[in-house]
Amino acid sequence: MRKKIIAGNWKMNKTTSETVTLINQLKPLVATEDADVVFCVPAISLTTAVEAAKGSNIQIGAENMHFEENGAYTGEIAPGMLDDIGVRYVIIGHSERREYFAETDVTVNKKVLKAFEHGITPIICCGESLTQREQGVTIDFIRQQIKIAFLNVTPEQAKTAVIAYEPIWAIGTGKVATSAQAQEVCKAIRECVAEIYDTDTAAAIRIQYGGSVTADSAAELFSQPDIDGGLVGGASLKPDFGKIVNYK
């Protein structure tokens, strides 16, 4: 049985000192053995977050990472830098990175491969726009994202990856896909992974739902057979995140 994974994507929020305060506040609220808990924090606070989370069940993730080991890439962060400070997860291909910073399916694949090289678990994001959903191409579009993201990824690596399905129309809008809509797409993602690899790999990989997840919607979403937790935005910055982690 797949263990649930609940990850908070802090985005561009919280100063370094505020990060320590929030982690200390959330530690007792997210303490559980039933799910993996990850806080993906701004780059400037990663080292501080790793220190603040020590002794708890919280793992720290980055919100982005470059696909080169080093070089003239002003403002970027190399995978070895993350590995060196104890970062264990990284969000790759979030829709905001694609929209505002020109990330593509190809660069997502490069980052996924590099994350695995360094033993960092990628949280690979996929999702459709409102127009794509209305035009009935959601599944086709997401299958393309998944197939390119996993190019040259081994079955052993794929089994440890996390996929986050985030319908773009539901991110930060207060709109949440119904549990049936979310399950339909997550099931299609798992079927796509089975086509790329095999049923064992598809059964092992964890698929999250993201997009305005709240304490009220978490239980129904996470009870779906192909949804293994959530990638949570705004709600991960509040005490309510504890209710999402302990959704049962």
Rank of each mutant, 00 (worst) to 15 (best):
N24T: 07
T138C: 07
E103L: 14
S45V: 02
T138Q: 11
P122T: 07
F141P: 06
E195Q: 15
Q145G: 08
A52F: 06
A202Y: 11
A7I: 09
R190N: 06
N9V: 04
N64H: 12
L29R: 10
P239A: 12
E18R: 05
A43P: 01
A102G: 08
W10R: 08
G61S: 09
G71S: 06
W10T: 13
I77K: 09
I44E: 12
L130Q: 10
K238S: 07
G61Q: 07
A177I: 04
L22P: 08
A31G: 01
L26I: 01
V193W: 01
K4H: 13
G93K: 03
K243H: 11
T19S: 13
E69M: 04
Q144W: 02
L46D: 01
V176A: 13
M81V: 08
L113T: 08
T48L: 08
L22A: 10
I58F: 08
T74Q: 09
C192T: 15
V185I: 11
G127V: 03
I120R: 04
N70I: 15
K111I: 01
T16A: 13
H118I: 07
I77S: 12
I92G: 01
I44A: 14
D226G: 10
E76P: 14
R98S: 14
I205P: 06
A202H: 11
A158Y: 02
I227K: 01
V185Q: 05
I139M: 07
A215E: 15
Y100S: 03
T16S: 10
Y89R: 07
A235W: 00
I196N: 09
P79K: 10
I163H: 07
I120T: 05
G229Q: 04
P225C: 08
P155I: 10
I244C: 08
G234S: 06
K14L: 05
F116S: 14
A170C: 13
L221H: 05
W169G: 12
L221F: 05
D83R: 12
S223Y: 01
Q144E: 15
A53N: 07
L26C: 04
T74C: 13
T199Q: 13
E96Q: 06
I6H: 11
D200R: 00
R97L: 07
A31M: 12
G210R: 04
G127W: 04
Y197R: 14
W169H: 11
Q183K: 09
T131G: 00
S236M: 03
T121G: 04
